[in-house]
Nucleic acid binder design. Structure first.
Length: 540
DNA sequence: AAAAAAG
């Protein structure tokens, strides 16, 4: 366990990509990456599942970039479809960074923004496209986006993309790309029914699961708590919690857009540097809020589930569920915004009377037993320290009692004025979004990650389905949001994956099973076939 | 029922 995970270079990744990753402080692979690279680079279809914040983006991004023909003819060669605009921007930036030394042109295609820039970029030529369903279909129908040469397709947050709301659009997109293509699905959560559905359009896919963890994929690194906020003033409760020592960036999730805005406004009024992000805001405001949060200008982000998946921001130390999430998948993704890449995090779910049933369902499904918190990381900040809970009791008392008792008590006396400030943030900040990125852009600092998780176990299963391979072309890049690419991670061997990674255990992920995987000879045939330009995707 | 996603 102390050994370090294999490097990207050891998988035969192109030097230009290795160099770009290195510049971002990334050298070694995470478990999902080590497990995915061999198969993905060979052109196999696959379903990749790993816990949140464990590198899934590069897990499919590197193989995808690897098979882009450079220079291409300007026709998109690979496509990544994501559920939200902000995630689209983020993934595009990550891939843009990883492919910069190859001269790969990357473009983010999403709604809420003018058509022209995107159309113009396509006109000039694009190799890699990352997009949200609506705008992708829109531009494709207008003939501005040509999907006829897509040789690699990825559905990020796959279970969400194949859910009722998105399925129709995804099916249409699938009908527009060549049958002969490589298709990969990634997500931290992958319900059985979704996998079954996926097999209908995947070609003998291998199911790769780093750190097996059926129910969800929750990091042991994140301390989870449930707080029975029955009939309590949740905003007041949170206002206090936000004053916790050592708190870094904090994300607060609500179930509705209205509530998200309201909570953000209330917190701003109380003097917190908070911003809101939800679908009722203009795209500019959404991106501005996220940038402000990323840069630290605002350290409290109140969001709807638009920000529950994929958003990768360093330094998010706390996630507070102002309202109980809809289901267990949403719960897993929401709290997955913290405790990323080897860091620790704290997740607190406030449960009101009318949410008890839903919470029980989530709790049971994920086998959570938060009434008796698993463990407390002395090194991680604790919201509860400001809720009147004795330090040493955090992990033992029945949450419902201790918290309520202590809280209500103080609540009445202290409640009066609104205090402000909390640790770092300064006074009142702009409400929704303020400017943004002035402060630190942490992107740079290449931190290096040490371990990855090659070693973790992986459950590989094969499945099958029908499907293709593909071919493609190339294009420019895009901009927006956060600069940073991958993130750093520190920590040495064993814990890289986290103490919990234990799950990994023995399975030799990488090769062993994956290789030929007992099942079928998946990889062989599928590779792309004859396209005029075909290049060896897997060549190297 | 809610959110997101084209406008």
């Amino acid at each position: 366990m102390t050994e370090e995970s294999p490097t990207f270079a050891s998988f035969g990744v192109k030097p230009e990509i290795v160099k770009a990753l290195g510049e971002a402080g990334i050298e070694r692979t995470f478990a999902i990456q080590a497990l995915t690279l061999p198969l993905a680079m060979a052109g196999d279809d696959l379903i990749g599942q790993a816990r949140t914040g464990m590198g899934k983006t590069l897990g499919f991004g590197v193989p995808l970039l690897h098979r882009v023909e450079v220079p291409g003819d300007g026709t998109p060669q690979v496509l990544v479809v994501v559920p939200t605009r902000e995630l689209c921007i983020q993934v595009a930036n990550d891939l843009k960074g990883a492919g910069k030394h190859l001269g790969i042109r990357t473009l983010a295609i999403y709604g809420g923004r003018p058509y022209e820039p995107q159309i113009e970029a396509l006109r000039k030529g694009v190799d890699v496209v990352i997009g949200t369903p609506g705008r992708l279909l829109d531009l494709a129908e207008q003939q501005h986006l040509v999907l006829g040469k897509i040789r690699g397709l990825v559905l990020d947050e796959a279970d969400e993309m194949l859910d009722l709301g998105f399925l129709p659009d995804i099916e249409r997109i699938l009908r527009m790309v060549p049958d002969e293509r490589q298709t990969m699905l990634f997500s931290a959560t992958m319900p059985g029914p979704i996998i079954t559905l996926a097999r209908t359009f995947l070609n003998q896919p291998t199911h790769i699961r780093a750190e097996e963890n059926d129910a969800g994929a929750i990091h042991e690194r994140t301390s989870q708590f449930v707080y029975r906020a029955h009939s309590m003033d949740k905003t007041e409760l949170i206002a206090r919690a936000l004053q916790a020592e050592g708190r870094g960036l904090t994300m607060i999730f609500s179930r509705t857009k209205r509530t998200a805005q309201k909570v953000a406004d209330d917190l701003v009024e109380r003097g917190f540097a908070a911003a809101a992000v939800h679908g009722d805001l203009g795209q500019g405001a959404r991106e501005q809020a996220l940038r402000a949060f990323r840069s630290g200008k605002v350290d409290v982000l109140v969001a709807t589930d638009v920000a529950a998946r994929g958003i990768d921001i360093d330094d998010v130390t706390h996630v507070i569920n102002y309202q109980c999430p809809e289901d267990e998948k949403t719960y897993v993704h929401r709290i997955g915004r913290t405790g990323r890449a080897g860091r620790t995090g704290v997740a607190v779910t406030l449960v009101d009377w009318d949410e008890e049933a839903r919470w029980k369902l989530i709790s049971d499904t994920l086998s959570l037993d938060l009434a008796e918190p698993v463990e407390t990381y002395s090194s991680s900040p604790h919201l509860f320290s400001d809720l009147g809970i004795p330090e040493g009791t955090k992990g033992r008392l029945p949450l419902s009692k201790r918290t309520r008792a202590g809280l209500s008590a103080e609540k009445e006396e202290d409640l009066g004025g609104k205090r402000r400030g909390r640790r770092g943030s300064s006074g009142p900040a702009s409400p929704s979004a303020s400017e943004d990125e002035a402060p630190r852009k942490r992107n740079r600092a290449p931190r290096k990650r040490t371990r990855g998780g090659a070693r973790s176990a992986a459950a590989i299963e094969a499945a099958d389905a029908a499907a293709p391979a593909s071919s493609g072309s190339s294009g420019p890049d895009q901009q927006e949001d956060r600069p940073r690419t991958p993130r750093r991670r520190t920590r040495s061997g064993a814990d890289a994956t986290g103490p919990a990674t234990s799950t990994g255990n023995a399975t030799p992920a990488t090769t062993s099973d994956s290789g030929e995987t007992g099942d079928r000879p998946a990889r062989r045939r599928r590779r792309r076939r004859p396209s005029a330009s075909d290049t060896p995707a897997s060549a190297d």
